[in-house]
């Protein structure tokens, strides 16, 4: 199989397979979590705070007072990586074209120079976060295979995409195929790795806000 054949497979059956596993996995994992349910809380709620859970979904995106100074690498690295990754993923014109092809939805893209900067920022932030994870005693103790796997799965599409866009290698078709395959691996493994936090964090934040709200704590 040469680069072009691999690219054809990745663009067709590979993408369908990866998306299928991803959707199935997200549904399975969500059911696994939500089906556990909650026991009724027999204590009366201390305060009626409708929307406490929903507000927490947004409020947890900002660092609490003083925390940015306490853990600057974790916060700044986290922001730069997540924003850079999202901008690259959703505003690079070829990506929008792909989404239009699959879902029929489209929106205006950003100039390639901006996408380039966002990608480099995300890559550098990821490297900084990796070094931080290796050096910080808490993160080192907490980290296991799943953390390194999640990092590698996320880094691969950024690196291969950057290499493909800049034609680093002579065989463009192969580089692009590897880029698409790395995304497909990311999609297929997302539900079964730490990457599932992209879905479950909304549930976790909601529960946190709801539990605090019942105790009468403002969120």
């Amino acid at each position: 199989m040469n680069g072009l054949e691999l690219l054809t497979w990745a663009r067709g059956p590979g993408l369908a397979l990866a998306l299928g596993i991803c959707v199935f996995g997200v549904i399975l994992r969500s059911v696994e979590i939500l089906a556990l349910g909650r026991k009724p809380d027999l204590a009366p709620a201390r305060a009626v705070t409708p929307g406490s859970g929903w507000r927490t979904i947004f409020s947890r995106s900002l660092p609490p007072p003083g925390m940015l100074r306490r853990a600057p690498l974790t916060y700044l690295g986290g922001y730069v990586f997540h924003l850079g990754f999202a901008v690259t993923l959703f505003f690079f014109v070829p990506h929008i074209e792909l989404i239009r092809g699959v879902l029929g939805l489209s929106w205006p893209g950003l100039p390639n120079s901006l996408i380039d900067a966002a990608t480099i920022a995300a890559i550098l932030a990821m490297i900084a976060l990796l070094i931080g994870r290796l050096v910080d005693p808490v993160k080192r103790l907490l980290s296991g295979g799943g953390d390194w796997l999640a990092w590698a799965l996320t880094f691969a599409p950024l690196a291969t995409g950057y290499a493909a866009y800049h034609h680093w290698f002579e065989n463009y078709a192969l580089t692009l195929a590897l880029h698409i395959l790395s995304i497909e691996l990311l999609l297929a493994l997302l539900p079964f790795t730490k990457l599932f936090h992209v879905v479950s964090l909304f549930m976790a934040r909601w529960y946190n806000g709801d539990i605090a709200g019942r105790k009468g704590v403002a969120t």
């Binding site: 979590i33 993160k139 549930m203």
Partner: peptide, 20 residues
């Protein structure tokens, strides 16, 4: 229960809990 499962599913080992 569901909250606990969602909490464990979401942890990315960022270590911020230790910082507080």
């Amino acid at each position: 229960d569901a909250p606990v499962a969602s909490f464990f599913s979401s942890c990315v080992h960022c270590g911020l809990c230790a910082e507080t």
